[in-house]
Design a protein around this nucleic acid. Structure first.
Lengths: 216, 216
DNA sequence: ACCTGAACACCGTTCAAGT
DNA sequence: ACCTGAACACCGTTCAAGT
């Protein structure tokens, strides 16, 4: 069969198969030839739908950021908005740990990342934050999310934890139980997010005014 | 020449040349054959010094984390310790942006990363933080540092900023001037770090005791 | 012990050719 | 418009062979 009546491939099918392969085998194993094989097709066929490998990977990265929830910025509730955004962003990345490096680098040229940033920025502006602060808040929260997804504690240590016990006594106390790794990841992220937001809330009062005081 | 009297290569020379290549040409362009070429040698020669490509890259990653400053944890001054660590860690990564992905993934199996984590953890313990908090503080600060180095604002947007102006109005206000990118990166990081530490300081008072009150 | 040339099994991508 | 086979210029890595 050279040209089927109904196309074998589509951009969506290729992108979804790519994410599946990355989830299953890791980013390092991903290849255009392997992707073609998984789709029952020859490698050059992919180039009818994507210009090159990087565009396929960009499509995967876009998929992960597309559905991040930025709907929490209502009625000036910036803290709620940031929390919702940060948690859903992290969850989206944590669901595909092998694909995180795709999202972590070169995000700025990707359409869906820019759209997400725009919504967050607008939400912060509408809550009264000055533009420069809005940029920096969005930035620092993004740092926390991407960092948490990139270097989870869970993947951070070798499987045999005993190796650390003698060499790194202080460290060993902390991750004595590898089963706790995911829990520690989640708590580290939540602690960082809560502290960051506490610090921002204090600055908000100085900059924009104490809403509680106004209500009183 | 088949075997010179004095070895042409060493682990250090290979690792340093690898970092230089990554700095100059980017991680995607890095290859064992290109590395050998830069060293005036044939590719298989490298395998007398490193088992494989990943070990070369691990050596580069170790180099970047080795000299991170963890000396600020003295006299229970945990905030100073964290600040010193976070800033020097970020500076070390920012000096080699192309190599950051190496540090961001698989850090836990690398000796120098573990040694750094151990020192930070011990510093937090000595300041009175409970072990679980020490782990999570080290984690959340590391998230901020790695995230900041992975997805800098400066590299985040296309060179022609005008493209954003019409499509993303709120965003465009923020990065109107591309020259500000580095400044915004630094300020976002510092804002995030300061807020995180403010939040932690408040928790420290509840957990460990208010040092100011004790002095009074 | 350290380096080489040849070789193997891969890559990403191009392109003319088919329908 | 969409897919293929053949081809090109690369990879990482192994291994026998040289000193």
């Amino acid at each position: 069969m050279v040209r089927p009546t109904t196309p074998l491939l589509s951009r969506e099918r290729i992108r979804d198969a790519a994410l599946q392969l990355i989830d299953d085998q890791g980013l390092a194993q991903f290849s255009m030839r392997g992707l073609a094989r998984a789709l029952g097709v020859q490698a050059p066929s992919l180039y009818s739908h994507y210009a090159n490998r990087d565009e396929v990977l960009d499509a995967v990265a876009n998929l992960l950021t597309r559905q991040v929830d930025t709907s929490g910025f209502v009625d000036g509730r910036w803290r709620r908005g940031v929390e919702t955004w940060a948690r859903s962003y992290r969850a989206s990345l944590a669901a595909h740990p092998n694909a995180v490096p795709l999202v972590a680098s070169g995000a700025g040229r990707r359409e869906d990342f820019l759209a997400m940033s725009e919504r967050v920025h607008a939400g912060l502006l509408s809550a009264g934050w000055p533009a420069r602060y809005a940029t920096e808040i969005a930035g620092s929260v993004k740092y926390l999310v991407v960092g948490a997804a990139s270097t989870p504690f869970a993947s951070g240590f070798a499987d045999d934890a005993t190796v650390y016990l003698e060499r790194y006594p202080a460290l060993a106390q902390a991750h004595r139980l590898p089963e706790l790794a995911e829990e520690i990841d989640a708590e580290s992220f939540e602690l960082g997010l809560a502290c960051l937001l506490d610090g921002l809330a204090a600055r908000y009062v100085d900059l924009v005014g104490d809403l509680n005081r106004e209500r009183a």
